[in-house]
């Protein structure tokens, strides 16, 4: 098992703060909101970790990190790039929440042809303005034919399911991981819904 080391030789053996990065791919930020639901426990957590790329810090690119938390599945080209950035930089990568674990709600489009979806959403659906067309700006990431959970695209070390995982589950998971243990969700914390 991939474990976190809490001391670092390059820092003279002194404890240092672990670097944590987080991101939401094809997710709803619900897992991030749940993360904030650890409430006052955020303060002791900040004694142990500092945040790199994350909606909390607004850092745009991930540097070398100890832990990466990925919310959401992979639905477009940008998701792939971000996921790879995290994989390359994070010692431990965690799939956080139902969408990262199995594609979740967005993956329920998978039985439809993407072309049909784009056609209906931008061209033929009700209530569209005259002359509506499918966006083709190179700034916009192209959607993938299907939505995939993150483990189908890169190697993932740990999974924390739930929609969202509760604050208590996230707290239990992170504190164990930070202590260098294999996280083990006790009874009641493991939920898929």
């Amino acid at each position: 098992m991939m474990r976190i080391e809490t001391t670092d030789a390059s820092a003279g053996g002194a404890p240092h703060k672990l670097k944590v990065a987080t991101v939401s791919l094809a997710g709803c930020f619900g897992c991030h909101m749940s993360f904030l639901d650890i409430d006052e426990r955020l303060l002791p957590l900040l004694e142990l970790v500092e945040f790199d790329r994350s909606p909390i810090t607004d850092i745009k690119h991930c540097g070398p990190c100890d832990i990466g938390l990925i919310e959401g599945g992979v639905c477009n080209a940008e998701n792939v790039h971000v996921l790879r950035e995290f994989r390359a930089n994070c010692k431990v990568l965690v799939a956080l929440g139902a969408c990262a674990v199995n594609g979740g709600l967005p993956a329920q489009r998978n039985h439809l042809e993407l072309a049909d979806i784009l056609q209906e959403v931008y061209r033929t659906g009700h209530g569209l303005a005259e002359g509506s067309r499918i966006p083709d700006d190179p700034e916009l990431p192209l959607p993938l034919n299907q939505v995939h959970p993150v483990h189908e695209v890169v190697r993932i070390d740990y999974f924390l399911p739930g929609c969202p995982p509760s604050g208590d589950a996230i707290w239990a998971f992170l504190t164990q991981l930070i202590e260098g243990k294999d996280p083990n969700l006790g009874p009641g914390l493991l939920h898929y819904d």
Binding site: V101, G103, L190
Partner: peptide, 19 residues
């Protein structure tokens, strides 16, 4: 779902068939 909880299944592990 409940059996998967009981057995501590954290991930579907394999690639999804999405039938």
């Amino acid at each position: 779902q409940a059996t998967a909880y009981e057995l501590g299944m954290l991930t579907p592990h394999f690639d999804h068939f999405y039938p």
